[in-house]
Design a protein around this nucleic acid. Structure first.
Length: 428
RNA sequence: GGAGAGGUGGCCGAGUGGUUGAAGGCGCACGCCUGGAAAGCGUGUAUACGGUAUCCCCGUAUCGGGGGUUCGAAUCCCCCUCUCUCCGCCA
């Protein structure tokens, strides 16, 4: 969430910049500032009262010590009214604080200056295109190929769980494992420390990275324990740093994690979403960075380069999109999407989303670092990116590398898979 | 799941109702000392909100979290939570 001080100081600018994401913040911000003012007044008043009370308590203590019980009891009587007022005031303050937090968490992050205006993904700005998109000799969508080769089984997943939970079989299962290993090894080369985090998170973590309170409908929930299945490793990995003050020389913190991700995808289950294009459970390697504010945009570039290299090594054609205001995630200041061209569908599939959240998540997380110059805590910047999400990579590999009766595995994966092609599973 | 013991600053640890935001130690920072270092000595060393936009300074809050008793709570009471030990169950 945004910092209230920042809003106080740059009210107009913030309202203007939020318009880029088609968010009209004028009313909510005015209300917020009004509440903030009340809150400050109430607190100043309460602090005065409390100071008075502390003073009296101290006096009473001294009186009792010196044996002057009469005077002490007199002073004691005086405090009743004060106490009432304080209680009332404290209530008011808490109430105002709650309202303030509630309003603050309704305001999305301020878009970076380079974010173009726009309404939907159609207005995203293509900033570069890489690789060859001439179609292969056989053009077939992956859902047909995987059915023909019998390597990924949706019906079976449907039987075990439900729609959107496919079963990968044989070489397809191993290809998944190969991709995960490949991504993690590349991440390790780029000095991301691997972590294997919990797949269930608590409410505080969900709030910290911004999934809660609003997007709880998109997460699977364990009601008995009030846990949530992670929609992305971003949640547990970023929350490693919740409520911490890092030393400046610890930064940047670079972490990565392979995890399954679980998404209910409520409301987005359209007819054009087929096969591996959208699943309730999928695998992903995520990279996360904690940075000093001055370096966070350099870090974002580095992450883009990292993702680009992965796609190039897999020999997949891709383009990089700068998300427009309308498509930008609630918590992000600037996001680049990586889309892979998948020949069988003649479609660009989003396989990675690389974002700088600036201090938006860090404010929620209370994630700070000690500024070496002032020696004061300062909010850090958080970033993350998929590197990479598996199913659509699988889809693109399957469609782009299909020869008519086999899928050719990209060379870079050979020593992970131990095979160079996937052919039809023999059924005896 | 049952029984018991605990949770105090970056860490260890004292503190069972009265200037205790908190002794002491370790660590860290700076200074003195030194040819340089170590040792020693000295000083400093939490966060948030508010007064005020900043520095200083001042006020308030915070001893796992929340609530209560009291003029006053780290200390007493209640609820929750987490950790440890033993038992049970278990991959």
């Amino acid at each position: 969430m945004l910092n209230i001080n920042k809003i106080r100081k740059n009210t107009e600018e913030i309202i203007q910049r939020l318009k880029i994401r088609n968010f009209d913040g004028e009313n909510i911000i005015n209300e917020l500032l009004n509440i903030d003012k009340q809150r400050k007044q109430a607190q100043a008043e309460n602090d005065r009262l409390l100071a008075g009370q502390n003073q009296i308590s101290k006096t009473i203590g001294e009186l009792f010590k010196s044996g002057n019980k009469e005077e002490a009891n007199k002073a004691r009587e005086k405090t009743a009214e004060l106490k009432n007022k304080i209680q009332e005031n404290t209530h008011t303050i808490k109430d105002l604080e709650h309202k303030q937090t509630a309003l603050l968490s309704e305001i999305p992050n301020i878009p970076h200056k380079t974010v173009p205006p726009g309404k939907s993904d159609e207005d995203n700005e293509e900033i570069s295109r890489h690789g060859d998109i001439t179609p292969p000799q056989v053009i077939k969508p992956h859902w047909d190929i995987i059915r023909d080769l019998d390597i990924i089984d949706f019906d079976l997943g449907n039987k075990i769980t439900g729609a959107g939970f496919p079963v990968y079989k044989g070489k397809a299962a191993k290809l998944q494992r190969a991709l995960i290993s490949f991504f993690l090894d590349e991440g390790e080369k780029a000095e991301y420390q691997e972590v294997l985090p919990p797949l269930l998170v608590n409410e505080a973590s969900g709030f910290g990275t911004g999934q809660l309170p609003d997007k709880d409908g998109q997460m699977y929930q364990i009601k008995e324990d009030n846990y949530f299945l992670i929609p992305t490793a971003e949640v547990p990995v970023t929350n490693i740093f919740r409520n911490t003050i890092l030393k400046a020389n610890q930064l940047p913190e670079k972490r990565m994690a392979y995890t399954p991700c679980f998404r209910r995808e409520a409301g987005s289950w359209g007819s054009d979403v087929r096969g591996l294009n959208r699943l309730h459970q999928f695998d992903k390697v995520e990279i996360v960075r904690i940075e000093q504010p001055d370096f966070s945009y350099d870090a974002l570039e580095e992450m883009k380069t990292h993702v680009s290299k992965l796609l190039e090594k897999l020999n997949l054609p891709y383009r990089i999109m700068r998300l427009c205001g309308g498509d930008l995630g609630f918590t992000s200041a600037l996001t680049f999407d990586f889309e892979v061209y998948s020949a069988g569908q003649d479609k660009w599939l989003e396989v990675s989303s690389v974002s700088n959240f600036e201090d938006y998540q860090a404010n929620r997380l209370k994630l700070r670092y000690r500024d070496p110059e002032t020696n004061k805590p300062r909010t850090a910047h958080t970033l993350n990116g998929s590197a990479l999400a598996l199913p659509r990579i699988m889809a693109a590999i399957i469609e782009n590398n299909f020869t008519g009766d086999a899928i050719v595995i990209p060379q870079v994966l050979h020593h992970y898979t131990g095979f160079k092609t996937i052919d039809k599973i023999k059924t005896n």
